[in-house]
Write a protein that binds this DNA or RNA. Structure first.
Length: 439
DNA sequence: AATCGTCCCAACCGCGATACC
DNA sequence: CGGTATCGCGGTTGGGACGAT
């Protein structure tokens, strides 16, 4: 592991590429392809390491690269994608044919950030600067405020020294987070992210105003639950793990009047598969062996099974069924694999998706290899939260079709969803993912 | 004209993940 | 199965271009 062995060799050239070197590399790859990059420089007659050759090819010599300035359309797309994906340049670049991640990254750092600031938008959070400033003010006043979930970024590189961009944009915390950038692990190639328990408290009404990347799902939802999140490719599941005490978690939810219910598609045996549009990620909440996840009267929480716990709002049965007075709206079912399943679908073809990945089954219990391979694709895609407009009649054990699940296709419908959810007064939260290409 | 600071971008670095032996 | 090689990613740096003083 670690650095490419060739990097240690002394005689290799570094720095800018000469036209002659470019020509050698271009000719060689055009003729033979790159194959193993480590062998390319030798066979192409270059005094470079394979890594350098690869980079030069990807960022400059590749014939499908688009040259020239970014168009307004590209610029807008980058901004939108960055709001969803953060500094995941490779994923952003995947949405812009002919552009490289490096190019986009440089464009962002040199130009777009400034433009956004000029428009009064914080480039890190994509929120209005005034709002960010307000949050900073709260932080100053509230000693509980501690930099929350921050992904190390180079928003202000050596030319523009950082003043704490990401961390400064977070809302007041409710308890000690013991968190810094160093214990946030982002596993790029698995698109997984481990988020330590955050002290951040954020109204759900705001939280569900936009679609979420996995990262954001992990951060915003997982941390609001006091969970860390990880993607498990083997089981194709997005799992949340408790990282803070249940007391802390309870304090969060107890203080948030807008907290919605979380409903499981497994709650009712009579419920049918919910056709989900635009959903491609299959999240789940992993239950720790020592704790139970509770949804009581719209207040999700963890209840430690140990006796030294004050949160006893529900009970578990042998099958992991957590119930509260038998009300379906306040019940979540956890199966033996300790995962809480959310629904999912695909693109605009819900029925097709249902065949691929049954909506009902708990994560891990019915995962096929075929689905596994699909998930590896889905996991790169943003996630969207929305709400099942479930009839809250106690007798109703059926979720309405996802066609009535608002805001699955993008950002624009979110307000309408939220409006509806407020009208109903008892929102049930449904998590899904939105196909990246549909952004 | 010389110096300095800033901007921009190509390239490098370090690391995690994965493939391979 | 463990060690090594390789790939791919995001963060960082080096240095040229350019404008201000």
């Amino acid at each position: 592991m670690g650095r490419h062995s060739c990097c240690y060799k002394q005689k290799l050239r570094k720095g800018l590429w000469s036209p002659e070197e470019d020509e050698k590399l271009l000719n060689y790859i055009t003729k033979y392809g790159h194959g193993c990059w480590s062998s390319v420089p030798k066979q192409a007659g270059l005094q470079r390491c394979g890594k350098s050759c690869r980079l030069r090819w990807i960022n400059y010599l590749r014939p499908d690269l688009k040259r020239g300035a970014f168009s307004q359309q590209e610029e807008n797309l980058i901004i939108e994608l960055h709001a969803v994906l953060g500094n995941r340049w490779s994923q952003i670049a995947a949405q812009l044919p002919g552009r490289t991640d490096n190019e986009i990254k440089n464009f962002w750092n040199s130009s777009l950030k400034k433009k956004l600031r000029q428009r009064g938008i914080d480039p890190t959070t994509h929120k209005p600067l005034s709002e960010v400033a307000d949050e900073d003010d709260h932080k100053d006043k509230d000693k509980l405020m501690i930099p929350s979930i921050t992904q190390h970024n180079n928003d202000d590189h050596h030319h523009q020294k950082s003043s704490g961009t990401a961390a400064s944009c977070k809302k007041p915390t409710l308890f000690e987070p013991a968190l810094n950038t160093t214990n946030l692990k982002v596993h790029h190639q698995q698109n997984s992210l481990e988020v330590p328990a955050s002290s951040e408290m954020r109204p759900y009404s705001e939280m569900f105003m936009k679609d979420f990347t996995f990262q954001q799902l992990s951060m915003d939802y997982g941390t609001s639950l006091g969970l860390s999140a990880s993607l498990h490719q083997s089981s194709n599941s997005l799992c949340f793990h408790p990282r803070s005490s249940s007391e802390n978690i309870m304090s969060q939810f107890s203080s948030d009047m807008s907290t919605p219910n979380i409903i499981s598609p497994n709650m009712s045996s009579s419920s049918t598969a919910v056709p989900v549009t635009s959903a491609r990620v299959k999240p789940s909440i992993s239950l720790p062996s020592e704790a139970a996840f509770m949804v009581n009267n719209g207040v999700p929480s963890w209840e430690a099974s140990s006796s030294n716990n004050n949160c006893s709002n529900g009970s578990t049965n042998g099958n992991g069924l957590l119930s509260n007075n038998g009300s379906i709206n306040n019940t979540a079912l956890f199966e033996s694999n300790n995962c809480f399943s959310w629904g999912l679908g695909e693109g605009t073809n819900a029925s097709k998706f249902e065949k691929q990945v049954p909506f009902h089954h708990p994560i891990g219990s019915n995962t096929t290899e075929e689905n596994s391979s699909k998930w590896s694709e889905y996991l790169q895609l943003p996630i969207l939260f929305g709400s099942l407009t479930q009839n809250n009649n106690e007798a109703s054990h059926h979720h309405q079709p996802i066609s009535q699940f608002q805001s699955m296709d993008g950002l624009n419908n979110i307000p309408s969803w939220q409006q509806k959810h407020h009208q109903q007064g008892n929102p049930d939260i449904y998590a899904a993912a939105v196909l990246g290409q549909t952004l």
